[in-house]
Write a protein that binds this DNA or RNA. Sequence first.
DNA 1: TAAATAAGTTTATAATATAAACCAAATAAA
DNA 2: TTTATTTGGTTTATATTATAAACTTATTTA
Lengths: 95, 95
Amino acid sequence: MFQPLDPLLHSELRLAIMSLLISAEEAEFPYIKEQTGATAGNLSVQVDKLSAAGYIEVEKTFKGKRPCTICRITPNGIKAFEKYVEAIKSYLEVK
Amino acid sequence: MFQPLDPLLHSELRLAIMSLLISAEEAEFPYIKEQTGATAGNLSVQVDKLSAAGYIEVEKTFKGKRPCTICRITPNGIKAFEKYVEAIKSYLEVK
DNA sequence: TAAATAAGTTTATAATATAAACCAAATAAA
DNA sequence: TTTATTTGGTTTATATTATAAACTTATTTA
C-alpha cells in the first residue's frame, strides 16, 4: 500500500539538496544555500547528515584563498533518491 | 525553484491518512489504522492535527454499541493535498 | 588598522513524531 | 457471575529532528 519513506530524504531541506545534486555534476555550498534559501547553519547540518549516510560526498577545497565546499551525489545517493521518488508516489497518486 | 512543503502534510502518517481519504468518501479509524500500519496512539494524534487544521472532519458515532470514528476529507483538505502534490513534484522531477 | 564580508561550524531551542501507558465499554471465557 | 480479553480509542512521556542563533576564522575593503 504505502511504501515507507526514507527519513533521511523525507526532509524539506535535505530533499532539496539531493534534488539539486541529482541534476548537477556538483554544487558549491553557497550555491546550494542560495537555491534552497536555507541558512548556512541549517545547510551545514543537513549536508553533514547526507554525507554521513553516504548519500553525498563533500570535498573541502579552496577557490583562490577562500574555502570552498563542493558537494556531489554518490551512487548510493542516487539509488536512495530514486527509491524515495517511487515511495512517495504511492502517497500521491489517487488510487 | 523549490515550492515550500506544507509541514502538516509533509509527514509520513498524515500524508498517508490524507491519501486514503482523498480517494474514499470516508474511512473508519480502525480501517485507517490497518491501512497505514500506525499505532492507535500515533493515529489519534495525527487525526487530531489534521482535524484541527480543518483538513479533515471527524465524526464520532456508534456502530451498534461500539464507538466508531469516521474521517472525511474537507474541501480545504483537498486543496491542501493537491497543493502539496504540486509542491513536492518540484523536488522530484529532474530539471 | 578597523570594519565588514565570506564561508562555514557548533550549539541551543523549539517543534515533532512516535509509542507506551492508560481508560472505558463490550464481549468472551471460566 | 466475575474475570479476562478485545475493541476503540486518548493522554502523556520521550526521543528525535529541524532550525536558527551564536560563534569562528580568514579575507577583503574602507
